[in-house]
């Protein structure tokens, strides 16, 4: 039985991600945001369901499509939005941008522009916990594309032989950029790769936040109990293209996109909460309105924040002062 508070928190986080992403896309298309943007709209249930199974002091590492993951782990949307605007007040002082947001205080080791890079890193975080004797677990998000990289295979092997407290969560959105899964790998269920490393693997509906939560909770329990790593594949879909600006239509049919949109993870969860009498419609509407304001305030904060000074570019490369 999941407490009501937890159920409501999951709804709130899913809507926060959806609103944040919608706003970011809108701003990017207006030319307000520099850099590149990879939207995670459609994948909210994976981010939220997986992170809801973690404690605040657990570790998490994300991907280039990472806004949802880090919001789910508790990141502040005002600092994120400021980072997207490349402002001095952003999470990375405006130097990292959309793809590199980290908040080590929240256990968010960051996003990365390099596909597959996070898997060995999360092993390191987990090994540090293991050697220090803490009971923290570490979770790594990655995509179907990353499951073909060498670092995926190296990392799963190392996690298994060292029995690391790691949860590998694959956000299988069926496309590695523009390449469909059936073109880039011969298997349908990425979880079968767990067998090759002698660890448990499971494939679940990534559009159902409670399914993801339950699967991750089981893996977290195992990891905390010194039972080693787990590979969880969550089947989901990104509604938009690989990056904002990619229409995503050259390699996907309209019917396919519409079919997945009809399984909107946020709407489904909302309906689920109401059907089970967890809360009333007005409670959810109140959350929606509050988040609408929160995102608007984040945009205001970002807009009103100062640009970095040119000299800031020279800071934080090495310890101490650096003069070119």
């Amino acid at each position: 039985m999941i407490p009501k508070e937890k159920l409501m928190e999951m709804y709130e986080k899913m809507v926060r991600i959806r609103r944040f992403e919608e706003k970011a896309v809108e701003l990017f298309l207006k030319g307000a945001l520099p850099g590149f943007l990879h939207s995670s709209i459609g994948q909210e249930a994976v981010s939220v369901g997986a992170c809801a199974a973690l404690r605040e002091d657990d570790y998490m590492i994300s991907t280039h499509r990472g806004h949802g993951d880090i919001i789910a782990k508790g990141a502040r949307v005002d600092l994120m939005m400021a980072e997207l605007f490349a402002k001095k007040t952003g999470y990375c002082k405006g130097k990292g941008g959309s793809m590199h947001i980290a908040d080590l205080d929240l256990g968010i080791l960051g996003a990365t522009g390099i596909v597959g890079a996070g898997l060995p890193i999360i092993n390191g975080a987990a090994l540090a916990c293991q050697l220090k004797g803490t009971d923290q677990v570490s979770l790594c998000f990655f995509g179907d594309g990353a499951s073909n990289t060498g670092s995926f295979h190296e990392a799963l092997n190392m996690a298994s032989i060292w029995n690391l407290p790691v949860i590998f969560v694959c956000q299988n959105n069926l496309y590695a950029e523009s390449t469909p899964q059936w073109v880039h790998q011969k298997i349908q269920d990425i979880s079968v790769r767990a067998q090759g490393y002698g660890i448990p693997g499971v494939s679940v509906d990534g559009n159902n936040v409670l399914t993801v939560y339950r699967a991750t909770s089981e893996a977290v329990e195992r990891a905390r109990g010194k039972g080693g790593p787990t590979l969880i594949e969550c089947k989901t879909y990104r509604w938009l293209g690989h990056y904002v600006g990619d229409p995503g239509t050259a390699y996907r049919t309209k019917e396919e996109v519409e079919q997945w949109k009809s399984r909107d993870p946020v709407k489904q969860y909302r309906a689920n909460l109401l059907a089970n009498g967890v809360c009333e419609e007005k409670d959810l509407d109140a959350i929606d309105r509050r988040l609408e304001r929160e995102i608007e305030e984040a945009v205001e904060f970002a807009r009103n924040s100062p640009d970095p000074d040119p000299e800031d570019a020279l800071q934080d490369v090495y310890i101490g002062e650096y003069i070119p």
Binding site: K95, P310, A313, L314
Partner: peptide, 15 residues
């Protein structure tokens, strides 16, 4: 360029 990771546009012109 300077001996730094290439930064975002707000400071790219400086780099």
């Amino acid at each position: 360029g300077f001996d730094i990771p290439v930064p975002l546009p707000k400071t790219e012109h400086y780099y």
